[in-house]
Design a protein around this nucleic acid. Structure first.
Lengths: 113, 113
DNA sequence: CAAAATTGCTACAAATAATGTAGCATAATT
DNA sequence: AATTATGCTACATTATTTGTAGCAATTTTG
């Protein structure tokens, strides 16, 4: 799978509009999860592997390369961490945490009736 | 692929924490794209197919079923549309539009140097 | 400082998911 | 009543993900 560089053709789109590139990227297995799990601080490869409960090393490495190329994460001696842009992105999606709890509650309610 | 009901085991997680269910869902090809493309109003199946530039009917239908089951969209005679919850979710992610443009700009800059 | 343990990651085959095209059964339009 | 459009399903091909094993390069330990 080629890395969804905005401007280039991406999966699911011919235009390559930035939002399409982003949606392609985030729509890949574990991409969101990695960003989510990195927000609590830098992590080594194996540490990150554990934070993401069930990711295979193959895929983890693939995603890390993509995210690095797209400047959402960077690797230092402390391990992998969100880049300033990655933090920015995380801040946008961070309300999903609370939202998902609400959502779970509602789904639960409705399944009762 | 089973539908990621919060509380149940989902792909990539044993806990089924709501956020994991959500990340599983949103990490599926085109899930985010469908939500994104529905925010501009209800659409029939074929209309939606066109808004999502390159989705196959098979996958579109699969995702629609999941999203419907998870109460993020609903179908009326006007076609498919975001549910109140779906709208809520969209509002969280809607800044991604602008963010992605910024991001594209930065990536472009850096690729020059 | 040599042996043992840990880390970051690759190889590769098996399993799963997505694509693309064709097409069918309604339902709406002419 | 014939034509067209719609909402999908079938199904074979192709692409992605998983899972396990393991290796080279540190780092830790005795």
């Amino acid at each position: 799978m080629t890395i969804p560089l905005p401007g280039a053709q991406v999966r699911g789109s011919k235009t390559g509009k930035p939002i399409m590139a982003l949606l392609d990227l985030l729509g890949r297995t574990w991409a969101l999860g990695i960003i989510w799990n990195l927000h609590s601080g830098p992590a080594t490869f194996r540490e990150l592997q554990q934070r993401c409960e069930k990711i295979s090393p193959t895929l983890l490495n693939t995603r890390l390369k993509e995210l690095k190329k797209l400047k959402l994460i960077e690797s230092q001696q402390a391990g992998y961490q969100l880049s300033p842009q990655g933090i920015d992105l995380f801040e946008i999606i961070s309300p999903l945490g609370d939202w998902s709890s609400q959502w779970a509650k509602i789904l639960k309610e409705e399944s009762k009736s």
